[in-house]
């Protein structure tokens, strides 16, 4: 059975983006993403340049999925954070429930600072995501689904 859609309302999006902006400024990071564990970009803040954000999110989720499975093979439940250190740019990924906070930073910041600020922000993000999930479930349980009005013609028009 397919699961209920995960619905992000505009107000929640703005709240998330404001937390991401705070994290980016506090960490002196280049860009900060919030990604769903299935690989969908929820929001981001910062300089993405010509980065393909959709692919980036998908790969970040794949990366965490793989390391989580590795964790289980050695008796851990999850690795709560994953770090990739490059010559110029580095990536810090923190697992927050069913989402991932991804911080891309360079030599202007340090891993210690990023870890500290990301941990603080994770509580705020978890609270917003809980609200999102509750509201998504309420919409799913309501008599009228979010896209009940889509017609066959609407769908066919995508392929014409």
């Amino acid at each position: 059975m397919s699961q209920s859609p995960f619905i992000l309302q505009e107000q929640q999006f703005l709240k998330i983006r404001s937390v991401l902006e705070r994290v980016r400024v506090e960490c002196a990071a280049r860009v900060v993403f919030l990604v769903d564990r299935d690989g969908q970009t929820i929001a981001f803040n910062g300089d993405i340049g010509d980065m393909d954000t959709t692919s980036f999110s998908s790969l970040a989720a794949g990366n965490v999925a793989a390391t989580t499975s590795m964790a289980r093979l050695i008796g851990e439940n999850v690795f709560p954070a994953v770090v990739h250190e490059g010559e110029n740019e580095s990536i810090f990924i923190s697992v927050i429930g069913r989402s991932l906070l991804v911080v891309v930073f360079d030599g202007r910041s340090t891993l210690g600072l990023v870890k500290l600020r990301a941990k603080r922000a994770s509580f705020d993000i978890a609270a917003i995501l809980d609200e999102m999930i509750r509201e998504s479930q309420l919409i799913a349980a309501s008599a009228k689904p979010a896209f009940a009005d889509i017609t066959d013609e609407d769908i066919d028009s995508l392929f014409s």
Partner: peptide, 15 residues
């Protein structure tokens, strides 16, 4: 799980 983003007005699906 379909992800519906009302802020960016996007429906994301995984196949």
């Amino acid at each position: 799980m379909t992800f519906i983003n009302y802020a960016s007005r996007e429906i994301n699906c995984k196949i």
